[in-house]
């Protein structure tokens, strides 16, 4: 039996270009992202641990983090739910104007955030199109955490839809057919077969919405009331530090926010890479 191996050994990768592409990636990443970002760590290191904690973890800052992280998480959850519905409808159903609907999903990426903020404030203020429907009921939307959440839903929606859509499109119907012939109801098929398959993508979409929402300034600043302890977002605190010409203090808050967001993203990306490895892809 001397037949040659059909495939090259798994270990050796025959595809060239690792050096080149990895080199370009690393270089560009360093120039554009890592070196500039390192400056905020350098600057915040100027101030010593005690001062860092006094500014970065002050009670006021903690309240602002709670608001920013809380509204960003709420927006992430809303987008996760409705984003899947939108992606599902776009992938599976045909209806008039579907292509147009598909195109407008990306609008939040394109509209300047300040414009989005102004437009949303105009709509949800007590005298706006929607605000005036809720005002008589005693519900304020603009200038409350609800308004902030709405702005963040707007900002983050494309992340979930665009993460889930390709996976859903790729998902073969055969698995679903198999589940159906085995007697699963449509809902069972969805929750046991489809949901686990789109799970990682959904998680990524959630994480990106969350991370983007935490730092968002332009759209939120118009619709937030900026009242300390109730509607003061964390990025506003960075601006107030800058207004006092306190660059170190600004970077301290930036570092805290960045570390949390980075942690969330890293956790999700690691779990994705790991799950892919498990599946043996």
């Amino acid at each position: 039996m001397t037949s040659p191996p059909v495939r090259p050994p798994r270990r050796r990768n025959v595809i060239p270009g690792f050096g080149l592409t990895f080199g370009i990636s690393a270089l560009w990443l360093s120039i554009i992202v890592l070196i500039p970002l390192a400056t905020i760590f350098l600057r915040s290191a100027h101030m010593g641990l005690e001062q860092f904690i006094a500014v970065g973890l002050s009670p006021r800052a903690l309240e602002a983090y709670r608001l920013s992280f809380g509204t960003a998480a709420a927006a992430g959850v809303v987008n996760a739910i409705f984003g899947v519905v939108v992606a599902w409808v776009l992938v599976r159903y045909d209806f008039i104007g579907k292509r147009l609907v598909g195109a407008i999903v990306d609008l939040p990426f394109a509209l300047p955030t300040a414009v989005a903020g102004i437009a949303l404030t105009a709509i949800y203020a007590p005298n706006g199109w929607i605000g005036q429907l809720f005002d008589p009921l005693g519900i304020r939307i603009a200038f409350t955490p609800i308004g902030i959440t709405i702005a963040l839903i707007f900002i983050g929606l494309p992340f979930v839809v665009r993460s889930v859509e390709p996976v859903l499109a790729d998902l073969g119907r055969d698995v679903e057919e198999a589940a159906a012939t085995l007697g699963a109801s449509r809902w069972q098929t969805f929750s046991r077969v489809i949901l686990p398959a789109i799970g990682p993508a959904l998680l990524t979409g959630f994480a990106l919405t969350f991370a983007r929402g935490v730092g968002e300034y332009g759209s939120v600043i118009f619709i937030a009331g900026n009242i300390q302890g109730s509607t003061e977002i964390a990025p506003l605190l960075i601006v107030t530090q800058l207004e006092q010409y306190n660059y170190d203090g600004a970077t301290a808050i930036a570092v805290v926010m960045l570390l949390v967001s980075f942690g969330v993203l890293l956790g999700i990306n690691l779990s994705q890479v790991a799950s892919r490895r498990r599946m043996g892809a």
């Binding site: 200038f143 600043i221 009331g225 900026n226 009242i227 506003l236 601006v239």
Partner: peptide
């Protein structure tokens, strides 16, 4: 008694 503290005067 201030419901909204905008970030700038024109706001």
């Amino acid at each position: 008694q201030v419901p909204v503290l905008d970030s700038g005067a024109r706001g």
